[in-house]
Design a protein around this nucleic acid. Structure first.
Length: 101
DNA sequence: TTCTTGACGCGCA
DNA sequence: ATGCGCGCCAAGA
């Protein structure tokens, strides 16, 4: 039986360790779908609210949150990351330090 | 079916 | 550092 992209990507995101982050592109690549960063973002958007997957640990390749600065979602994600000990430097996390794998 | 969008990424000026 | 263009690809109009 074959695992679909959706399930695989959710699994990858779910395996990101607490206190670390991964970019959309990395998640896609690890799941076996390089060049599909947009797919990752789309799935997170369609993800049910009652899901327990750590969606907040996914930021873009620049270490920035992919929501407009100041928006509720932006604040929510930033807060979750801060609570895990991830520090922000000018609205962005240091990928060299917090990047998973 | 074609065109536009978008929680993206990379190279280049 | 900062735009800008282009590649990607599934979903919606």
């Amino acid at each position: 039986m074959e695992i679909d992209k959706e399930t695989l990507i959710y699994t990858v995101i779910g395996s990101i360790p607490k206190g670390q982050v991964a970019s959309y592109g990395q998640v896609a690549a690890i799941a076996g779908y390089p060049q599909n960063a947009r797919l990752v973002g789309r799935l997170l958007k369609l993800m049910p609210n009652d899901s327990t997957i750590p969606w907040h640990r996914v930021v873009n390749s620049q270490g920035k949150i992919s929501f407009p600065i100041g928006s509720n979602k932006y604040q929510e994600q930033r807060q979750k990351l801060l609570l895990e000990g991830i520090a922000f430097k000018n609205e962005r996390v240091n990928m060299r330090v917090y990047q998973w794998q």
